[in-house]
Protein backbone atom coordinates (compact mmCIF):
# COMPACT_ATOMS: atom_id res chain seq x y z
CA UNK A 1 0.00 0.00 0.00
CA UNK A 2 1.38 3.36 -1.01
CA UNK A 3 1.44 6.24 1.50
CA UNK A 4 -0.78 8.43 -0.67
CA UNK A 5 -3.24 6.90 -3.09
CA UNK A 6 -5.39 9.07 -5.32
CA UNK A 7 -7.89 7.34 -7.57
CA UNK A 8 -9.92 8.99 -10.31
CA UNK A 9 -9.99 12.34 -8.51
CA UNK A 10 -12.41 14.91 -9.88
CA UNK A 11 -12.57 18.46 -8.47
CA UNK A 12 -15.17 20.88 -9.74
CA UNK A 13 -17.69 23.55 -9.01
CA UNK A 14 -21.29 23.98 -10.15
CA UNK A 15 -21.85 26.70 -12.75
CA UNK A 16 -24.86 27.24 -14.95
CA UNK A 17 -26.51 23.98 -13.91
CA UNK A 18 -23.52 21.71 -14.54
CA UNK A 19 -20.17 20.86 -13.02
CA UNK A 20 -17.10 22.64 -14.28
CA UNK A 21 -14.19 20.35 -13.53
CA UNK A 22 -10.69 21.63 -12.87
CA UNK A 23 -9.19 18.24 -11.98
CA UNK A 24 -10.44 15.36 -14.12
CA UNK A 25 -9.74 11.79 -13.24
CA UNK A 26 -6.31 12.04 -11.65
CA UNK A 27 -4.80 8.81 -10.34
CA UNK A 28 -1.46 8.65 -8.57
CA UNK A 29 0.58 6.75 -6.00
CA UNK A 30 3.24 8.15 -3.71
CA UNK A 31 5.30 5.80 -1.54
CA UNK A 32 6.74 6.72 1.85
CA UNK A 33 9.98 8.68 1.53
CA UNK A 34 9.55 9.29 -2.21
CA UNK A 35 9.43 12.61 -4.01
CA UNK A 36 6.86 13.08 -6.73
CA UNK A 37 6.71 16.19 -8.87
CA UNK A 38 3.45 17.65 -10.17
CA UNK A 39 4.20 19.92 -13.12
CA UNK A 40 2.12 21.87 -15.54
CA UNK A 41 1.34 25.39 -16.69
CA UNK A 42 -0.53 27.65 -14.34
CA UNK A 43 -4.21 26.73 -14.28
CA UNK A 44 -3.60 23.04 -14.93
CA UNK A 45 -5.10 22.03 -11.58
CA UNK A 46 -2.00 21.46 -9.45
CA UNK A 47 -3.05 23.60 -6.49
CA UNK A 48 -6.60 22.27 -6.45
CA UNK A 49 -5.19 18.75 -6.33
CA UNK A 50 -3.04 19.71 -3.34
CA UNK A 51 -5.97 21.41 -1.61
CA UNK A 52 -8.17 18.39 -2.27
CA UNK A 53 -5.63 16.16 -0.53
CA UNK A 54 -5.61 18.51 2.47
CA UNK A 55 -9.42 18.83 2.32
CA UNK A 56 -9.00 22.59 2.15
CA UNK A 57 -10.78 23.30 -1.13
CA UNK A 58 -12.40 26.71 -1.03
CA UNK A 59 -16.14 27.09 -1.32
CA UNK A 60 -17.65 26.42 -4.64
CA UNK A 61 -14.90 23.90 -5.39
CA UNK A 62 -15.24 20.37 -4.06
CA UNK A 63 -14.27 16.79 -4.77
CA UNK A 64 -17.00 15.50 -7.06
CA UNK A 65 -15.70 11.99 -7.54
CA UNK A 66 -12.85 9.72 -6.60
CA UNK A 67 -10.86 8.71 -3.59
CA UNK A 68 -7.88 10.07 -1.68
CA UNK A 69 -6.30 7.75 0.88
CA UNK A 70 -3.47 8.41 3.28
CA UNK A 71 -2.03 5.23 4.77
CA UNK A 72 -5.18 3.54 3.56
CA UNK A 73 -7.50 5.96 5.35
CA UNK A 74 -10.11 7.61 3.13
CA UNK A 75 -9.96 11.42 3.30
CA UNK A 76 -12.79 12.30 0.91
CA UNK A 77 -15.85 12.93 3.04
CA UNK A 78 -14.01 12.20 6.30
CA UNK A 79 -15.34 14.06 9.37
CA UNK A 80 -13.74 17.40 10.19
CA UNK A 81 -12.23 16.08 13.44
CA UNK A 82 -10.41 13.30 11.56
CA UNK A 83 -9.16 15.73 8.94
CA UNK A 84 -7.95 18.15 11.63
CA UNK A 85 -5.99 15.30 13.13
CA UNK A 86 -4.33 14.53 9.78
CA UNK A 87 -3.66 18.14 8.78
CA UNK A 88 -0.38 19.27 10.24
CA UNK A 89 0.00 15.78 11.67
CA UNK A 90 0.50 12.96 9.19
CA UNK A 91 0.24 15.30 6.20
CA UNK A 92 1.31 18.87 5.90
CA UNK A 93 1.60 21.57 3.28
CA UNK A 94 3.70 24.58 2.42
CA UNK A 95 2.11 27.20 0.21
CA UNK A 96 3.45 29.70 -2.29
CA UNK A 97 2.68 32.96 -0.50
CA UNK A 98 5.19 32.95 2.34
CA UNK A 99 4.82 36.69 2.94
CA UNK A 100 1.15 36.28 3.93
CA UNK A 101 1.34 32.79 5.37
CA UNK A 102 2.13 33.68 8.97
CA UNK A 103 -0.32 35.35 11.30
CA UNK A 104 0.98 38.93 11.63
CA UNK A 105 -0.16 39.53 15.20
CA UNK A 106 1.36 36.51 16.94
CA UNK A 107 5.05 35.74 17.52
CA UNK A 108 6.28 32.88 15.36
CA UNK A 109 7.04 30.88 18.51
CA UNK A 110 3.39 30.98 19.53
CA UNK A 111 2.33 29.84 16.07
CA UNK A 112 4.81 26.98 16.09
CA UNK A 113 3.95 25.88 19.60
CA UNK A 114 0.21 25.97 18.87
CA UNK A 115 0.79 23.37 16.16
CA UNK A 116 2.76 21.27 18.63
CA UNK A 117 -0.01 21.61 21.19
CA UNK A 118 -2.64 20.59 18.65
CA UNK A 119 -0.94 17.37 17.55
CA UNK A 120 1.60 16.33 20.14
CA UNK A 121 -0.02 17.78 23.25
CA UNK A 122 3.18 19.66 24.00
CA UNK A 123 3.03 22.82 26.09
CA UNK A 124 5.36 25.06 28.06
CA UNK A 125 9.03 24.22 28.18
CA UNK A 126 8.70 20.98 26.24
CA UNK A 127 6.95 22.76 23.35
CA UNK A 128 9.59 25.47 23.41
CA UNK A 129 12.38 22.95 23.11
CA UNK A 130 10.76 21.23 20.13
CA UNK A 131 10.00 24.58 18.50
CA UNK A 132 13.63 25.62 18.82
CA UNK A 133 14.68 22.31 17.34
CA UNK A 134 12.29 22.73 14.40
CA UNK A 135 13.60 26.23 13.65
CA UNK A 136 17.15 24.95 13.85
CA UNK A 137 16.33 22.22 11.41
CA UNK A 138 15.14 24.72 8.79
CA UNK A 139 18.29 26.78 9.19
CA UNK A 140 17.14 29.73 11.29
CA UNK A 141 19.99 31.07 13.36
CA UNK A 142 19.61 31.78 17.07
CA UNK A 143 16.23 30.05 17.07
CA UNK A 144 15.56 30.51 20.78
CA UNK A 145 15.84 34.29 20.44
CA UNK A 146 13.68 34.27 17.30
CA UNK A 147 10.71 32.57 18.95
CA UNK A 148 9.43 35.88 20.29
CA UNK A 149 9.76 37.70 16.98
CA UNK A 150 6.84 38.64 14.77
CA UNK A 151 6.53 37.71 11.08
CA UNK A 152 7.24 41.26 9.91
CA UNK A 153 10.70 40.94 11.41
CA UNK A 154 11.57 38.17 8.91
CA UNK A 155 12.37 38.27 5.20
CA UNK A 156 10.27 36.32 2.69
CA UNK A 157 12.76 33.45 2.54
CA UNK A 158 12.95 33.30 6.32
CA UNK A 159 9.17 33.28 6.61
CA UNK A 160 9.03 30.34 4.24
CA UNK A 161 11.54 28.57 6.47
CA UNK A 162 9.34 29.24 9.50
CA UNK A 163 6.33 27.90 7.60
CA UNK A 164 8.31 24.80 6.68
CA UNK A 165 9.29 24.42 10.34
CA UNK A 166 5.60 24.53 11.27
CA UNK A 167 4.78 21.98 8.57
CA UNK A 168 7.39 19.47 9.71
CA UNK A 169 7.18 20.12 13.45
CA UNK A 170 4.88 17.15 14.00
CA UNK A 171 6.91 14.84 11.75
CA UNK A 172 4.43 14.35 8.90
CA UNK A 173 4.81 11.41 6.58
CA UNK A 174 3.67 13.48 3.62
CA UNK A 175 4.72 17.04 2.86
CA UNK A 176 3.05 18.86 0.00
CA UNK A 177 4.95 21.86 -1.31
CA UNK A 178 2.81 24.00 -3.64
CA UNK A 179 5.21 26.23 -5.56
CA UNK A 180 7.09 26.99 -2.35
CA UNK A 181 9.69 29.13 -4.08
CA UNK A 182 7.70 30.89 -6.80
CA UNK A 183 7.23 34.07 -4.75
CA UNK A 184 10.85 34.23 -3.60
CA UNK A 185 14.05 35.75 -4.98
CA UNK A 186 15.92 33.48 -7.34
CA UNK A 187 18.88 33.16 -4.96
CA UNK A 188 16.56 32.12 -2.15
CA UNK A 189 14.70 29.62 -4.36
CA UNK A 190 17.64 27.27 -4.60
CA UNK A 191 18.19 27.42 -0.83
CA UNK A 192 14.59 26.46 -0.09
CA UNK A 193 14.68 23.58 -2.57
CA UNK A 194 17.93 22.44 -1.01
CA UNK A 195 16.32 22.61 2.44
CA UNK A 196 13.34 20.51 1.34
CA UNK A 197 15.71 17.95 -0.14
CA UNK A 198 17.65 17.80 3.11
CA UNK A 199 14.54 17.48 5.26
CA UNK A 200 13.20 14.73 3.07
CA UNK A 201 16.33 12.67 3.64
CA UNK A 202 16.65 13.49 7.33
CA UNK A 203 13.01 12.87 8.23
CA UNK A 204 12.08 10.31 5.59
CA UNK A 205 9.30 12.57 4.27
CA UNK A 206 7.36 11.76 1.18
CA UNK A 207 7.26 14.91 -0.92
CA UNK A 208 4.59 16.02 -3.36
CA UNK A 209 6.41 18.88 -5.04
CA UNK A 210 4.28 21.17 -7.16
CA UNK A 211 5.92 23.53 -9.59
CA UNK A 212 5.89 24.88 -13.10
CA UNK A 213 9.67 24.98 -13.05
CA UNK A 214 11.07 21.77 -14.50
CA UNK A 215 14.64 22.46 -13.40
CA UNK A 216 13.68 22.86 -9.75
CA UNK A 217 11.64 19.70 -9.96
CA UNK A 218 14.50 17.74 -11.46
CA UNK A 219 16.70 18.68 -8.53
CA UNK A 220 14.47 17.18 -5.93
CA UNK A 221 12.03 14.65 -7.39
CA UNK A 222 12.36 11.01 -8.32
CA UNK A 223 9.31 10.99 -10.52
CA UNK A 224 6.96 13.49 -12.07
CA UNK A 225 3.41 13.74 -13.28
CA UNK A 226 2.71 16.20 -16.07
CA UNK A 227 -0.71 17.77 -15.68
CA UNK A 228 -2.65 19.69 -18.29
CA UNK A 229 -6.21 20.95 -18.23
CA UNK A 230 -6.82 18.99 -15.05
CA UNK A 231 -5.72 15.70 -16.67
CA UNK A 232 -2.62 13.60 -16.35
CA UNK A 233 -0.68 13.71 -19.61
CA UNK A 234 2.28 11.67 -18.60
CA UNK A 235 4.07 10.17 -15.64
CA UNK A 236 7.70 9.09 -15.64
CA UNK A 237 10.87 8.92 -13.61
CA UNK A 238 12.83 12.18 -13.95
CA UNK A 239 15.65 10.81 -16.08
CA UNK A 240 13.52 9.21 -18.82
CA UNK A 241 11.11 12.14 -18.76
CA UNK A 242 13.87 14.62 -19.55
CA UNK A 243 15.53 12.34 -22.10
CA UNK A 244 12.47 11.24 -24.01
CA UNK A 245 9.02 12.44 -23.02
CA UNK A 246 6.29 10.21 -24.40
CA UNK A 247 3.58 12.84 -24.64
CA UNK A 248 3.66 15.74 -27.10
CA UNK A 249 2.79 18.08 -24.23
CA UNK A 250 5.73 16.77 -22.19
CA UNK A 251 7.92 17.42 -25.21
CA UNK A 252 6.54 20.95 -25.62
CA UNK A 253 7.03 21.70 -21.93
CA UNK A 254 10.68 20.60 -22.09
CA UNK A 255 11.25 22.68 -25.19
CA UNK A 256 10.16 25.77 -23.24
CA UNK A 257 13.07 25.46 -20.84
CA UNK A 258 15.99 27.48 -22.20
CA UNK A 259 19.13 25.36 -22.50
CA UNK A 260 22.68 26.68 -22.25
CA UNK A 261 23.40 25.14 -25.63
CA UNK A 262 20.67 27.22 -27.27
CA UNK A 263 21.64 30.25 -29.26
CA UNK A 264 20.81 33.43 -27.27
CA UNK A 265 17.22 34.54 -27.51
CA UNK A 266 15.94 31.18 -28.65
CA UNK A 267 12.72 30.54 -26.77
CA UNK A 268 10.17 27.99 -27.76
CA UNK A 269 6.92 28.88 -26.11
CA UNK A 270 3.96 26.58 -26.61
CA UNK A 271 1.67 28.11 -29.20
CA UNK A 272 -1.85 29.00 -28.12
CA UNK A 273 -3.32 29.53 -24.67
CA UNK A 274 -3.93 27.19 -21.75
CA UNK A 275 -7.48 25.84 -21.73
CA UNK A 276 -10.31 27.35 -19.76
CA UNK A 277 -12.00 24.87 -17.45
CA UNK A 278 -15.58 24.26 -18.49
CA UNK A 279 -14.74 24.66 -22.16
CA UNK A 280 -13.12 21.25 -22.05
CA UNK A 281 -15.20 18.55 -23.60
CA UNK A 282 -14.26 14.92 -23.59
CA UNK A 283 -11.35 15.60 -25.94
CA UNK A 284 -7.68 15.59 -25.03
CA UNK A 285 -7.24 19.07 -23.53
CA UNK A 286 -3.97 19.60 -25.38
CA UNK A 287 -5.38 18.74 -28.80
CA UNK A 288 -6.01 22.35 -29.92
CA UNK A 289 -2.35 23.26 -29.35
CA UNK A 290 -0.80 19.93 -30.35
CA UNK A 291 1.24 19.75 -33.54
CA UNK A 292 0.73 15.99 -33.73
CA UNK A 293 -3.01 15.92 -33.12
CA UNK A 294 -5.11 13.31 -34.90
CA UNK A 295 -8.77 13.86 -35.76
CA UNK A 296 -9.63 11.48 -32.95
CA UNK A 297 -7.82 13.68 -30.34
CA UNK A 298 -10.50 16.34 -30.57
CA UNK A 299 -13.32 13.86 -30.06
CA UNK A 300 -12.41 11.36 -27.42
CA UNK A 301 -10.17 11.33 -24.36
CA UNK A 302 -7.17 9.05 -24.86
CA UNK A 303 -6.81 6.08 -22.50
CA UNK A 304 -4.01 5.95 -19.94
CA UNK A 305 -1.37 3.56 -21.16
CA UNK A 306 1.32 1.98 -19.00
CA UNK A 307 4.87 1.49 -20.26
CA UNK A 308 6.76 -0.17 -17.44
CA UNK A 309 7.22 2.52 -14.79
CA UNK A 310 5.76 5.15 -17.07
CA UNK A 311 2.25 6.18 -17.95
CA UNK A 312 0.93 8.40 -20.71
CA UNK A 313 -2.42 9.40 -22.18
CA UNK A 314 -2.13 10.06 -25.91
CA UNK A 315 -3.78 8.61 -29.01
CA UNK A 316 -0.42 8.67 -30.79
CA UNK A 317 0.79 6.00 -28.38
CA UNK A 318 -2.13 3.67 -28.91
CA UNK A 319 -0.93 0.83 -31.11
Amino acid sequence: MALLEIDDLHVGFPAGGRMVEVVRGLTLRLDAGQALGLVGESGSGKSQTALAVMSLLRKPLRVTRGSIRLEGQELVGAPEATLRHFRGGAMSIVFQDAMAGLNPVFPIGTQLMDVLAAHRGLTGRAARAVAVEALEMVGIREPAARLGHYPHQFSGGMRQRVLIAMAIACRPKLLIADEPTTALDVTVQAQIVELLHELRQKLGLALLFITHNLDLMAEICDRAIVLYGGRMMEEAPIGPLFEAPLHPYGRALLDCVPRLADEPGALHPIEGAAPTPGRLGEACPFAPRCGLALPRCAEEAPPELAFGPRRAACWRLVP
Binding site: L56, G89, A100, L102, Q111, D114, V115, A118, L163
Partner: peptide
Protein backbone atom coordinates in the same frame (compact mmCIF):
# COMPACT_ATOMS: atom_id res chain seq x y z
CA UNK B 1 -10.13 34.62 3.77
CA UNK B 2 -6.54 35.55 4.62
CA UNK B 3 -3.72 33.24 3.62
CA UNK B 4 -2.50 32.85 7.20
CA UNK B 5 -5.88 31.51 8.30
CA UNK B 6 -5.69 28.91 5.54
CA UNK B 7 -2.26 27.97 6.85
CA UNK B 8 -3.60 27.68 10.40
CA UNK B 9 -6.32 25.36 9.13
CA UNK B 10 -3.74 23.39 7.16
CA UNK B 11 -1.78 22.93 10.38
CA UNK B 12 -4.82 21.34 12.01
CA UNK B 13 -5.44 23.96 14.68
CA UNK B 14 -8.66 23.47 16.66
CA UNK B 15 -11.71 25.71 16.44
CA UNK B 16 -10.83 27.67 19.56
CA UNK B 17 -7.32 28.56 18.43
Amino acid sequence: LAEHVRVSRAMGLGRGR
